[in-house]
Amino acid sequence: MLNSLQTKLGQSVKSKKLNVFGLFFLLAFLILVITKLSDTYVETIPFKIQYKNLPDKNIITLDSIPSVNVTVSTHGFKLLSYYFQNKNYQLDFEKNTFIKDNNYVWIADQGIYDIKQHLGNNVDVISVKPDTLIFPFGTLSVKKVPIILKSEINFALGYDTLNGFEITPDSVNIIGAQKEIDTINYVETKPFNLENVKTNINSNLGLEFSNSSDKLKLSESSIHIIAQVEKFTEGTFDVPISILNLPNTIELNYFPKQIKVSYYVSLNNYKDVKPTDFIIECDYSDVLKSGQSFFKPKLIVNSTQVKSARMKQNKVEYIIK
């Protein structure tokens, strides 16, 4: 038991000695760091250029954003702080550039004051490389193009929309350099997919423009889409055939005398559709030109309430008496 007590006392003394040693080691290390950070160093700091006060009508046509390397002299604490700061330099196009041959020109000597302001006090700027930056620019143009609805919409059985889909606005202005917008003829919406639709559609939808240059802008970012969805049914009528451009000197017999027409209409408007809303015409001058021995009938629908219609027969035989 006495041996065990002696062992524990020895371990305790050693542990305290280690703790004291660790504390002094940490203090020595901190003093060393503070001493080193108090010294003056020369370092080169890269800054990415950000555009400021660029006229709205102009656009920089560089493929990548340039940067400048600023060599500074300052104490270590200041340099350490730059590792946690946003390394961007806002280039003021109104104050620090001039125009030459459709280029904005920035000279370090003119912008060094802003760089010093950005770096703060107790910092000496030794050099800025490159000392000149060239920014080619183009004048923005505007082109109006249609918006194409990119959709896959499947209606429930017996349902449809009479007037289709209405999108607002139906066109958009593309703003950018002339040579870039010349290649764009339309803008698509983001995919709009619906299944088993039975109710009216009323939704906002974004525009798909991510594959285009990031230098181009759209006057609109989204569109509004609406559609009135109704229950639909099919109806049929026997419609008589009219012969056009038949000379008075010619008498002919044709058959059939009428053709069955099926049409698709909303259930609410079914009773409003009449046989007189449909006309079937056969043009004698067409068979003279083609030399065919039969007519190709044409269906004319005079009702906006009919979504679609088709004839059950597409040939009319005739003989000249």
Rank of each mutant, 00 (worst) to 15 (best):
I34H: 05
F84I: 10
H75W: 13
D114R: 09
L80P: 03
I126Q: 13
N185C: 01
F232T: 03
A108I: 00
L91D: 08
K257W: 01
S171H: 13
I181E: 00
D160I: 07
L5C: 07
Q313F: 06
Q85N: 15
Y270A: 15
E195W: 06
N103K: 14
L194H: 07
G164K: 12
D277P: 12
N245R: 11
D170Q: 12
K48N: 13
N19Q: 04
S285K: 15
K129D: 07
G176R: 06
F137Q: 07
K307I: 07
S38V: 08
I115Y: 02
T71S: 09
S127N: 13
N121R: 08
S262I: 11
V128T: 00
D182T: 11
S171L: 08
T7N: 09
S285Y: 08
I134C: 00
I31P: 00
T44I: 00
K16A: 14
I320K: 10
F278C: 02
S213I: 00
E188W: 00
L288Y: 05
K8W: 05
L299N: 08
N248P: 08
L30I: 09
A227C: 13
S266M: 10
D272A: 14
Y264V: 04
P297Q: 08
I115N: 04
Q292C: 01
L216C: 03
E195L: 11
K298C: 02
F98K: 09
D56I: 11
T97Q: 07
K17I: 15
Y89L: 12
I107C: 04
N86H: 05
K271R: 10
I99V: 15
S308K: 12
K307Q: 07
